[in-house]
């Protein structure tokens, strides 16, 4: 496989990751969000493997595998069962003003392109152009957490942010050291369990996973 083809493939995968980030931002249905998240993980894993192949850094294969297992299978499965158990799979979220959110998202992508411009000039890695996408994915995840009202979609926003960070690591430095990556993966898994427990508590207390309800906790004046 020639280097040029690898770069093009990686570009395509980066574009797909960006697309899935936007899809997460505007999708209303719970299960669809979950599916998109799984796809994002899939593209991320594939991209890691492609970079690993091209650079000969074989530890990237392991991270790729880890990503695939964690983010395509395990985390979506956990969230899936959670959604089932809490009987919220029919819920459709009222997303605030979709076109405005989209425009804000586009603005963030352009902003992150602007931010990463100096790095792009310094770096010699073949993945340097995808750094902007990685940063944009982080920001879009954060934007998703800000605009969503439902706890589950906020968690997915958080996980998408983590995807972005991981992608940033591979495109900026061909991945973090193995130990760090393993640690992060474990953290994520634990986070998912803790979120699950929180969801149950929030759901039993407020009879809903709408985080707006938590405003009730504020002391009345």
């Amino acid at each position: 496989m020639s280097t040029e083809l690898v770069i093009q493939l990686n570009t395509l995968l980066a574009a797909m990751i960006l697309l899935t980030s936007f899809a997460l931002l505007v999708q209303r249905r719970m299960f669809a969000i979950l599916h998109i998240f799984a796809w994002q993980g899939f593209f991320l894993g594939l991209s890691t493997a492609v970079i690993g192949f091209a650079t000969g850094e074989h530890h990237l294969y392991i991270s790729s595998l880890l990503t695939l297992v964690m983010k395509v299978i395990l985390l979506p499965y956990i969230l899936y069962t959670l959604i089932h158990k809490l009987k919220i799979h029919r819920e459709i979220e009222s997303v605030m003003n979709t076109p405005a959110t989209m425009l804000a998202g586009i603005g963030l992508v352009i902003f992150s392109y602007h931010l990463t411009a100096p790095v792009r000039q310094l770096s010699t890695l073949m993945t340097r152009s995808t750094l902007a996408v990685a940063l944009a994915t982080v920001m879009l995840g954060l934007l998703m957490m800000v605009t969503r009202r439902h706890a589950v979609s906020q968690i997915i926003g958080f996980l998408a942010m983590e995807n972005g960070l991981f992608f940033a690591a591979t495109s900026a430095t061909y991945g973090m050291p193995m130990v760090v990556e393993l640690g992060v993966a474990l953290d994520l898994l634990i986070a998912a369990f803790i979120f699950g427990i929180f969801f149950f508590h929030i759901n039993t207390t407020f009879d809903s996973l709408d985080v707006e309800q938590m405003a009730k906790l504020k002391e009345g004046d």
Binding site: L18, T98, M102, I110
Partner: peptide, 23 residues
């Protein structure tokens, strides 16, 4: 429809951005 056409706009813009950032 604003959402539908908004997504079309989003996709086209992403295409433009992808061209400048990635290609």
């Amino acid at each position: 429809l604003p959402e539908y056409l908004g997504s079309a706009f989003l996709l086209a813009t992403l295409g433009m951005i992808a061209f400048f950032i990635l290609e």
